[in-house]
Amino acid sequence: MNVPKLKFLAPLGIAALLMGAANTETITVKGSDTMVIMAQRWAESYMAKHPGTTIQVTGGGSGTGISALINGTTDICNSSRPMKSSERAKLQERYATLGIEIKSAKDGLSVYVNDASPVQDITLDDLRDVYLGKITNWKQLGGPDAKIIVYGRENNSGTYAFFKDHVLGGKDYLASMQSMPGTAAVVNAVSKDPNGIGYGGMAYAKGIRILGVRKAAGSAAVVPSAQTVGNGSYPLSRYLYMYTSKRPSGAVKEYIDWILSPEGQAIATQVGYFPAR
C-alpha cells in the first residue's frame, strides 16, 4: 500500500465531499396529510428538473408539521389550516419570528357519503348536528332509516381543526366519531360503509360521492368545483398553506417560487386542488 499517495489523495477526497455537499440541497417538507399527495407530486416534478435538489416529503398531519417547524426538524411545513396563535407564540419563543405563511393551493373541504346513499346534499346546520351527535339517523336527512356512521380525522389533522372551527363552531366532535389516521382512510371507510359520512380534501374523492353543501335550508346546494371554490361560493372553501420559520431563502425560496408558478399550480390542479390565486 502506497501510504504517501493516500495521504496526498485524502485532502482531495475531503474537498470532493465538501463540493458534493455544496452541490446537493436537501429540503424537508412535513405536515398535512391532505396535502401530501400534492406535495409529493411537486417534489417529484421539481427534482426531475433540478437534479441537485433533494426534497423529502412526509405527512403526519398539520399539527405534527407545525411542531416539526418549531423544533427545527423541517424546512417547510404543510398545513391545511392557518397556524394557531399558540403555535405562533412557540415559533416566536424559539426563533423570534412569526413564521412566513404561503398560500399554496385552494381546496373545497368535501363531505363524503357512500355511492349507494340517496342523500344528495346537506345544510351546514345539519352537517354540524351530525358531527355533534344531534342527528343520528339518515332518515332525518331524507335518507333510509339507518344509523349514521360518522368518520373523521384525528386531532393532529388540520382538516379536523378546520372542520371543527368552520362547521362545529369550535364545539367538540361527538364521542363516537371514528377517527381515521388520514383522508385516504376516511374515503376507504366511507366507500365500504353504506351508512357512513366523512370529510376531507377533494383530491381524495375516489370511490365515494361528494355531497352538495347548503349554507342554509333555503339556499342552493353547492358542489365543490374549480369555479365554486375559486369564487368562494362553496361554503367550505379553504386555503392550503405552507409555512417556513423565517423568510425563505436559497433552495427553499426557489422551490416555493416554483410551486407558486403556473407550472407548480398546474400540478395542484392535476391532483384535484385549485390554484391559490
Binding site: Q92, Y95, A96, T97, L98, S245, K246, R247, S249
Partner: peptide, 15 residues
C-alpha cells in the same frame, strides 16, 4: 419585542 430580521442572510429573528 420580536422582529424577523431574516432579510439579512443567515439571520432569523431578533428578540
Amino acid at each position: 419585542i420580536t422582529w424577523d430580521d431574516s432579510f439579512v442572510p443567515t439571520l432569523a429573528g431578533l428578540k
